[in-house]
Design a binder for these strands. Structure first.
Length: 330
DNA sequence: AAGTAATCCTGATCGC
DNA sequence: TGCGATCAGGATTACT
């Protein structure tokens, strides 16, 4: 289950290969992976071709590759010797409408980005042009100025993930920062330097729900999924169904600190993977699964007190906790 | 309005 | 060996 650390590993892995690279060709093998793209696959393919990427960015579990806007593009020799820029770009007659109008005025163009969400089982694999991966739903062949011809395979078994082209908007709290429109409702993640601890604690206290529900609500705090929610709750000794309004401020602050600690530690170990469901851009697994204290540890002794870890169904997923260390307090 | 349930989705694995 | 049942859960949509 790719959560913040796993997505960040992917983002960091893509930076050297994608920044400054141009899209040579796009193949959509399963258009369900474009569910979040507004328009058919032909529209996606047509708009991707010839695009040049800036450095990949991330918020929570969302990843995006900004397009270098035309105004910023390096002056390049007209005609393009590599054959992938400009000239071949064709416009689909079914979708001639440019929402902004004046294509000629590059300064008026809104920024766009390729938004990627890995869902439950998504991977972005960086390959050479001769490598295919099973379950590849979308393939991007790119050309990097120094690394040359490369391939990005978007692999996704369960098709909960997606790719989409999306326009960029100013963020509410820091308008000089841009974010894809479909990510605008996602809260900043706890590793974001602009994350507002006081605002988070205030909103958390106002919720009328259980703490794990709140941690998994990406509009309150992003990047946390089932694994790291269970791990942070275990570390802070909080029961998953503890009402948010009953958490004392120090306890909530401790929990936030433990969330950060577990995310940072997992990031340092390359993320969590139990099998081939999550890998970095080179197809390698992370090691954090060796560091889990609660998630998936049902029946095994709690590393703190020895009481067997319990797994319960909650929110249509598993919740793992120590029944002795983590009790609902009131 | 806010909180919660339903929905999507398929390869790997297991039991018989 | 084959086959159906089971399992994993992030984000959005649809309700109450």
């Amino acid at each position: 289950m790719p959560e913040l650390p796993e997505v960040e590993v992917v983002r960091a892995g893509l930076v050297p290969a994608v920044t400054g690279a141009s899209v040579a060709s796009v193949t959509v093998f399963d258009e369900r992976s474009l569910r979040r793209h507004e328009g058919p696959s032909e529209d996606f393919i047509d708009r991707m071709r010839g695009v040049r990427f800036a450095a990949p960015e991330r918020r929570g579990k969302f990843l995006w590759l900004p397009f270098v806007s035309e105004i910023q593009e390096f002056p390049t020799h007209a005609g393009g010797s590599n054959g992938v820029s400009g000239g071949e770009r064709s416009k689909s007659p079914e979708f001639p409408k440019d929402p902004v109008g004046a294509r000629g005025d590059a300064a008026e163009l809104p920024g766009e980005a390729l938004v990627v969400h890995l869902g439950m089982s998504g991977q972005v694999l960086l390959r050479d042009r001769s490598t295919d991966d099973r379950l590849t739903r979308i393939r991007l062949d790119i050309v990097h100025p120094t690394a040359g011809a490369l391939r990005l395979n978007f692999v996704d078994q369960r098709i909960f993930g997606s790719m989409a082209i999306n326009t960029m908007l100013p963020t509410r709290d820091h308008p000089e920062q841009l974010i894809p429109a479909q990510v605008a409702h996602i809260a900043r993640d706890p590793l974001d330097e602009c994350f507002d601890d006081a605002l988070f604690l205030k909103r958390l206290g106002a919720r009328k729900t259980g703490i794990k529900r709140a941690l998994l609500d990406q509009t309150l705090v992003s990047g946390i999924g089932n694994i790291y929610a269970d791990e942070a709750l275990w570390a802070a000794r909080v029961h998953y169904d503890q009402p948010t309004s009953t958490l004392s401020r120090p306890r909530a602050q401790l929990l936030l600190a433990e969330v950060r600690a577990v995310l940072v530690k997992a990031l340092g170990e390359g993320g969590t993977s139990f099998d081939a469901q999550y890998v970095n851009v080179n197809g390698n697994s992370g090691y954090f699964s060796h560091s889990l204290n609660a998630y998936g540890q049902q029946g095994k002794p709690c590393p703190r007190c020895g009481t067997p870890i319990v797994r319960e169904q909650f929110m249509n997923r598993g919740s793992h906790f120590c029944p002795k260390c983590q009790k609902v307090s009131g």
